[in-house]
Design a protein around this nucleic acid. Structure first.
Lengths: 342, 342
DNA sequence: CTGAAAGCGCTTACAG
DNA sequence: CTGAAAGCGCTTACAG
């Protein structure tokens, strides 16, 4: 009964063979019509089109794929598809995919390499035409295998050392320099940085920018103003804020290394009587509605996704030119918090 | 040259046949090992497993699908996958899908029915095992066709009149009642509502809750406090705010019908000397960091997605029981803006 | 426990 | 302009 049900359902969808029978033409003629191939007599063409509508036929891409090797789908692996930056990235990629008649699988790795490997394999099994990956900071041998198998891969937001593939990055160093210089321009000399763990690529680059900006301004580098070990929980970040401010020679300005840290810092600062100047890396919603508005160096997730996806489809369409790395500029958005003097 | 390249690439991936040859067994034995079927002698099993690793074999799901009719993938159609509520929905669905060894296609309809139809067809062509849809408010005949073809469909956030399918909704009426009663409890008698267009299902339900709460408290319904035509641009919403407040008998409290409207209202209110009380429908990030914190009635996107996906997989696994509709409760979160008296 | 044959729904390569 | 045959990589149904 249940098996019967299943096989009936499977048969319920009409195939090209059914269409051919209904239109009294051969299977191949239906195929030509469906694929817009030339050389079909108008009357047969019409008969086929009518049969397609009448039967409610929809071509089985899977079957076509089996023969010609293209699945008309691509995959995106991020850490967390619900996080705003990555969600926007996905939306932009989705748009480009649709332009190429492709559909997007979205999968979240949660930042673990086991999960990432599992997802790469799952996507490879579906024979996606290409893969976009925001890589976790771990070995990626399984990705090398896919690349060797001929699956185009583009890395987004972070490169993977040792694997040559197109990569789209934010200009993290430049962005951090913008942020810190902005604070220096407003008279600050003691600027603390609260950033992600040093094993994260973007965190390292942003720290490098921080140092460069200080050096360029002839400011002394004070290690006691550097907090690079902020784990991703609010309390530890709040502790960093206290350590930066609650002392004899406090920081007068803060540079926060990503939007999670920025927001956690704001929570810690809430209710403080004398607040330091602040510029955050990465924009976030409502930054302009807070009092004061939060100045940020913004990354452009939308163009990042667009560039990455376009790069990927070039490869899918056979582009064999050398691997490229794209760096996207950031934009300083002053909203008040960074324009506070001493 | 380029064609050669392509065919070489296509052949680069080893097939079960290759594995069978390498392990000196038949194709069927490889199939048994790959599918964890019983009845394979341990030594052959090992030989196959070794060959799989050695060749880097990964099963082609597409080919398997062709035979047994399951693609091990599902599709999600939302209006905008980058919008926080829908992004969280997608993330929750993704999680459930992975538990069922399924991968998730995410596609954004931009709220237009042409795009939605196109996406339904694209997903149907890929023979997804099921479809989750946040439907646009338009006819959905193309969906009825898919349902008749046997594709399980679950509607999320909004029902589709005339199509019987599992549906997961927020208790919009109850949530609106919670919000408005909260304002009434704090002494407000003149409560304005700024909500979405009446052709939107959720907007209607929330308006119904607004009316019910007023009636229950014996308050007069004043049509001049009702703004149900707010198009989705900031300026029109700002205009509604002005019309509600800048008059002889102003509203003392505002109920905003979704988070976009809430935020636009806050922007309009920024800098106002005397701000009305406010409760918004739907939570948003940083609502607690604003001054005052914004009180909201929160929907639970995560459980919404989880429920919807679990419902879908039950259907995929053959559940034929009657269609259900799930209503998820909302939660009032007081943060300050709604606890302002007269 | 094992395997040879047929077939899923298409496209490719070829013949007329 | 049209179609019959073979084959893509698997699973199903069956025979040993």
């Amino acid at each position: 009964m249940s098996i019967d049900e299943t096989s009936r359902k499977a048969r319920q969808r009409p195939t090209m063979k059914d269409v051919a029978a209904a239109a009294a033409v051969s299977l191949k003629t239906v195929s030509r019509v469906v694929n817009d191939e030339p050389g079909v007599r108008p009357d047969k063409q019409q008969a086929v089109e009518r049969a397609i509508v009448a039967l409610g036929f929809s071509r089985n891409y899977g079957a076509a794929m089996l023969r010609h090797g293209q699945s008309s789908s691509i995959g995106l692996i991020v850490e967390d598809s619900a996080e705003p930056f990555q969600a926007t990235l996905g939306r932009a990629i989705e748009r480009v995919a649709l332009e190429h008649d492709s559909l997007l699988f979205v999968a979240s790795s949660a930042g673990t390499s086991e999960r990432e490997r599992l997802l790469v394999q799952a996507l490879a099994s579906r024979r996606v035409d290409g893969l976009l990956v925001v890589p976790s900071n771990h070995p990626h041998d399984y990705l090398r295998i896919e690349i060797q198998s001929g699956v185009p891969v583009v890395f987004v937001d972070r490169p993977v050392p040792g694997i040559a593939a197109d990569t789209v990055l934010t200009d993290n160093v430049g962005g951090a320099i913008q942020a810190v210089r902005h604070l220096i321009d407003h008279g600050h000399r003691r600027i603390a940085i609260i950033a992600d763990l040093p094993d994260i690529f973007t965190a390292n680059e942003r720290f490098e920018g921080y140092q460069t900006a200080l050096r360029a301004a002839g400011l002394e580098y004070d290690p006691s103003l550097v907090f690079r070990n902020a784990p991703t929980d609010r309390d530890s970040i709040a502790e960093c804020v206290v350590r930066a401010l609650d002392r004899e020679d406090p920081a007068t300005a803060l540079f926060t290394g990503n939007s999670f840290i920025t927001v956690a810092t704001l929570r810690a600062l809430k209710g403080c009587s004398h607040r330091p100047a602040l510029v955050g890396f990465d924009d976030f919603e409502l930054a302009d509605l807070l009092t004061p508005g939060i100045s940020v160096v913004a990354q452009d997730a939308w163009s990042m996704g667009t560039h990455a996806a376009e790069l990927l489809f070039k490869r899918i369409h056979g582009d064999q030119s050398p691997t490229v790395q794209i760096r996207l500029a950031t934009a300083l958005i002053p909203r008040g918090s960074g324009e506070v003097g001493l």
